[in-house]
């Protein structure tokens, strides 16, 4: 599954030794091209679509996409993290939007 990086939003987490998506990916797939300071996925074929990178991005610059052989253009699912809740916004191919918000931590 390919994470898509919005180059207008991504700054490669400038100033950090590794970007947040680089840090989060369990498959070591995210990297930053330092010549332009933009993140990229080094092998979209190896992505498990766990969305760890998407959740970790401080600028909401990453979007997960379903490969076309599996799903049609273009649905979106966006997570928004706050202290102890997560909000998901999902839009299907017909434009219907659903929002899911719930508590994901009890200790914060």
């Amino acid at each position: 599954m390919p994470p898509r990086i919005n180059p207008d939003k991504c700054n490669g987490c400038e100033g950090l030794a590794e970007s947040k998506c680089e840090e989060a990916c369990p498959g070591d797939l995210m990297a930053v091209d330092e010549t332009v300071m933009k993140a990229y996925c080094r092998s979209t074929n190896d992505c498990w679509d766990c969305m760890s990178c998407t959740k970790a991005c401080p600028r909401n610059a990453i979007e997960q996409r379903i490969p076309y052989q599996l799903g049609y253009h273009k649905a979106t699912l966006k997570p928004f993290m706050s202290k102890n809740t997560i909000t998901w916004k999902c839009k299907d191919i017909y434009g219907n939007e659903k929002v899911y918000k719930y508590r994901n931590r009890m200790d914060k």
Partner: peptide
């Protein structure tokens, strides 16, 4: 699904 396999919800949306 969002808790375990979030992209399945995206998959359903991508199938309409």
């Amino acid at each position: 699904y969002l808790n375990e396999r979030p992209t399945f919800v995206l998959f359903l949306a991508a199938r309409g």
